[in-house]
Every structure is written in C-alpha cells, then in structure tokens.
Amino acid sequence: MFDVLTGNILPVFSVLALGFLLGRIGMVSGIEARAINRVSFIVFQPPLIFLLIARIDVASFPVRPLALYACAEIVAFVLTYQIARRIFGREVAEAWLLAMAVVFVNSLLYIWPISVLIYGLDGVTSIGAIVAWDSTVAFAFFIISIELLSGDRGAGAAVASMSRNPVLLAILLAVLTNLIALPLPAPLVTALDFAGAAAPPLTLFAVGVILSASPLVPTPVVITIAGLKLVLFPLMVWALISQFSPGDPAAPQFILNAAGPSGMMAFSLALLHGVRSDAITPVIIWTCLLSLIPLALLA
C-alpha cells in the first residue's frame, strides 16, 4: 500500500497540492488559475478526450459491471439531489452539481493517470471503459443539463453555446471516428498525444490554486455530500457488482474508480454558470484528501 501511495498516487496528487500551496501564499492568483483552467479546458482536454474515445476498443468493455456502475451513478445521483434539495434547501442548479460531485469521479484527470502508473496502459481496460462512459454520456449530460438549468441564458443561446463547446465537439467527433473505424494519421496522433498530455497537470494545478481560496471548515452539507461520495457510492458499486456479477475480474478497478475524489468539472461548471459553489468547492478538497488512503488500499 505504501509503495502505491508514494510511488503512484501522491505524485499525481502533488500537482493539485502544489497549486493549492502556491495559491495560499499568493504566488499564483485566482485570475491566473482561471485562465490556465480555461486554456486547459478548451485547448488541451479536447485532444485528450478525443484520442481516448477514438482509439478505445468498445468490444473489450466489461459490459455488465459498466452497466451496474452506471446504475449506481443514477441511484446515487437521484438520492443526493433529493437530499440537497429537501434537507439542505439548495437551489436546483446547485443541488444538481452537488449530486454530480457524488457520482462524477475525477477519473480522466486523476484516476486514469494513477491507474496507468500502477497497471500500465494495457492493464486499465476497465478504467478506460469508465472514463469513456463518463467522458461521453455522463459528461455530455451534465454539460447540457446545467446549461438549461442554470437559467443564465435562453434555450436558443444555450443550444448555440453547446454547439461551440470544444469538449462536446471532441466527444462527438471521437464517437464518429470510433464507429466508422477511421484511421488517424500518425502525425495527427502524435500532435494530439502531445497536447492532451498537458491537460491533467494543468487542470489539477489550476483547480488547486482556485480551491486554495476556499474555507476548509466542513459544514453539514459538505460532510454529507463528501460522505455520500466516499462511502455510499463505492459501497453501491461494490454491492451491485458483487450481487449481479460476482467474481468479475473487472470489479476491483470499478470499485477503485468509485472511491476516487469528486470530479472537478462540478466546480468548473458552477464557475462557468455562476452557480453557488461554497459547498461544491470544499467537497472537492475534502474528497481529494480523504480518498488518498482508500485509493492506496484498493489499488
């Protein structure tokens, strides 16, 4: 466990921690970090997502555990949304993003690089399946739904904005490329690989800086949402796979991913659409910190 923690998990986490530290001491400002985050989102994440989806072998997906994982996401999302709305009285858009923070794990930018370090690129088929699912269906769902729910623009403007969203366009092009088995020229793959490799460290660093301005004292809503993310969601994934796909060799990686920290896109979407984020932000901070040991144990 110690070797996995120090050799694979902490090096990735250290980029986020570095951003947090430099933000705390004022060496990097929130304005600078937001600019970095925006550049990463619109320039470097699209090639990363495109190559992952375009080259992935869908036929190798562990279909049953992936379907069970998706079921756990749906149930946990609905439950968290109801808790955020009915118990804590949060507005619709904020409750929506708090529920997203429970089920949308930081798999692409955090769990994926950690898993590649541990298992090698050929040993992360299950994590790749989750990343593909979350990067296409789940991510697109949250981008589109929060555009409509946030109420900061009309339906026509929301549709126009989505049609220009580089991540959504990358997802669409990657799915089409995969479906028709379009060969990609080697120079293009090299360029996309080179650009995409910048997305995880840049995003982790920028978000670390932005999160450094947030209070760390947990409130009841933060404790509840973080608990649902770190305890309930992994238990749901484990229970469903154990019950309906017992002994599945893909199970450990699905549980590993479920135990990861909240995806930072919940915060990014809140920032983009002016949604209250005083609970979303510390949820991300605390789940990043508290997930270190469970990830080391499960890896």
Results as ranks from 00 to 15, higher is better:
L192F: 12
V75W: 00
I25E: 03
P187E: 02
V283A: 00
I284M: 07
L290I: 15
G196C: 07
A160V: 13
V231W: 00
L228Q: 08
F77T: 12
L289P: 10
V116R: 09
G26V: 15
S291P: 13
V28N: 06
Q243A: 09
G89Q: 12
L272V: 14
S126I: 14
I255N: 01
F2A: 09
P252G: 05
S107Q: 12
F61E: 08
T219H: 02
L149R: 12
G128H: 10
P220H: 06
F2H: 05
V58G: 00
A158G: 13
I144G: 00
L121T: 15
V167M: 07
V221M: 03
L98R: 10
V12M: 04
L192D: 06
S214Q: 14
L211T: 14
F61L: 11
L297D: 06
F142H: 12
I225L: 03
V222E: 01
V12W: 03
V137A: 06
L79S: 02
N178K: 09
P220R: 04
S268D: 06
S145Y: 00
S277H: 14
I127E: 02
F2D: 09
D3S: 12
V237F: 01
Y69T: 15
L269K: 11
Q82F: 07
S40Y: 08
P220M: 06
L10G: 07
Q82L: 13
A226F: 10
S212N: 07
W286P: 08
L211V: 15
L292K: 13
E94N: 10
V207L: 05
V275M: 02
P282S: 04
A72Q: 10
G154S: 10
A33I: 15
L182Q: 07
Q82I: 15
T125N: 03
S161K: 13
L292M: 11
G89I: 15
L48N: 06
V105W: 00
I284D: 02
V189S: 04
L18V: 15
W238N: 11
I118V: 15
R164F: 01
S277K: 12
A213G: 14
G26C: 10
I171Y: 02
L216R: 13
D248L: 10
R38W: 06
M27R: 11
D152L: 00
A70R: 07
S242N: 09
L290W: 05
P234S: 02
V131G: 01
A158H: 08
G274I: 14
F233L: 12
N165W: 08
A259N: 11
N257D: 10
A138K: 14
S268G: 04
I255S: 01
I225N: 05
A181I: 13
L148Y: 07
V207N: 04
T6C: 03
R164I: 08
D3M: 00
V78A: 05
V124I: 15
P65H: 01
D122K: 11
I144S: 00
V75D: 02
G128N: 15
L149G: 05
I83F: 01
L16F: 14
M27Q: 06
P282Q: 03
T136R: 04
P220I: 14
L271E: 13
T281W: 00
S268M: 14
S145M: 14
Q82P: 00
R24F: 01
T219R: 10
L97R: 09
I74N: 01
Q243F: 04
I146L: 09
L271Q: 11
I114G: 02
